[in-house]
Design a binder for these strands. Structure first.
Lengths: 211, 211
DNA sequence: CGTAAACAACTGATATACAAGATGTGTTCA
DNA sequence: TGAACACATCTTGTATATCAGTTGTTTACG
């Protein structure tokens, strides 16, 4: 879905604004104001909102208005559960399907994340961690799984930014992907799946403890 | 996403038309003609097409036109792979989470499917089989997984209709869900997952043999 | 005779304008 | 003083019109 139409520009811009919290959860959206702010017409903005609603990034209440979807605890648990379901399967498949280039790229990314863990710049950590997961999904080369996973990863990114904004993370809240990478490099699907499951359940538990 | 706006009506109608092959794969879509045929304006139809494109039911080629997405063998294999990834995880979760009402409803549906297998009305079989999978996903009560799974199930339904249209199925191509149901009723997540995996890999192999 | 360039027609893409529904406020009556 | 009804305003939803881009065809030139 390459951005060439105004509608695609609006979609990409709005998604960015929602995920990086420039439009925080529960923000009400005024179509006309937003359109002139983006320098676009109302029609392409509307088309973009319709698509974002399918991703559940915004919630359209017919004849009442559109709002950035709020982020409740049940929602967050759904995100984690869905990620676990899809990404564990993805890790299993990727172990068999990854090319040497994939593994090399992944190793670089994982090392970057490990450096990020030593710093206190959690924004950079989040971005690089996100990149690892996106790359992993990319390995499978299945657009349908990719669609689903990318959406979940963005929801997840939005959540962590929100979560850490007021409660900056301790160092051990920033997890490594060393086990996962090692499993992939030894082409061990079951171990890769287990590593991913461990990775996701651990981070989920870090959230649940706080609530 | 309840249908009340014209845009929702257009979305639901078009999705039906695509999945039941009234609009076969690769059909080119003329917005104006379609709008007047549906008795709607062009704008809501456009919004609906934008959403259908996100589901990959139609393919928008900017400034060139919109077509119902074709159905190639690699696409079909992606559908099966994605279904296996998601639905096996769903089956695992559902085994622990299903209520007694869920199990009762599922049992009725599975028995209906088993009756369908005795007949030659593959359309009815497809609909009831679809209903079983939809119900199973519903049990998990996770809208994100539901979004992803429902989409895949519709893609799958479209494929089977296409596939069996010219090659009507033999009786053993119509699979049962007896094993899955029995695993769910004994609350055995691993067995439920295994039953689902067996179900899906078997039907995938039935396709691959023919190509 | 073949190829390339220009033109015309079609169709999608966006902007402008209009209509309808919902919400909040103000006034009036109990 | 409180509650209910009506009105006004705001915002979404839809239709119509205009603009721009792509494609296919035709014509002219090599």
């Amino acid at each position: 879905m390459p951005a060439q139409r105004d509608s695609d520009i609006a979609y990409a811009t709005l998604q960015d604004m929602i995920v990086d919290l420039r439009l925080p959860p529960s923000t009400f959206i005024n179509e006309s104001a937003l359109a002139s702010e983006l320098g676009l017409g109302r029609v392409p903005v509307r088309e973009a909102l319709a698509r974002l609603a399918k991703d559940r990034f915004v919630t359209i209440m017919p004849r009442r208005g559109t709002a950035v979807t709020p982020l409740t605890l049940p929602d967050v648990l759904d995100i984690f559960e869905a990620r676990e379901t899809i990404e564990c399967g993805v890790a299993y498949i990727a172990a068999a399907r990854a090319s040497e280039e994939d593994l090399a790229a992944l190793r670089t990314l994982v090392e970057t994340v490990d450096r990020d863990r030593e710093s206190t710049d959690y924004e950079q950590f989040l971005l690089d961690d996100h990149a690892v997961h996106v790359r992993l999904v990319h390995i499978v080369q299945n657009v349908l799984l990719q669609d689903a996973a990318d959406r979940l990863l963005l929801h997840s990114l939005r959540f962590w930014r929100m979560h850490w904004k007021n409660r900056p993370p301790s160092k051990d809240a920033m997890l490594s992907h060393a086990d996962l990478l090692s499993a992939l490099e030894s082409r061990d699907p079951s171990r890769a799946e287990a590593a991913m499951r461990d990775h996701l359940t651990t981070s989920r538990q870090l959230v649940q403890i706080l609530f």
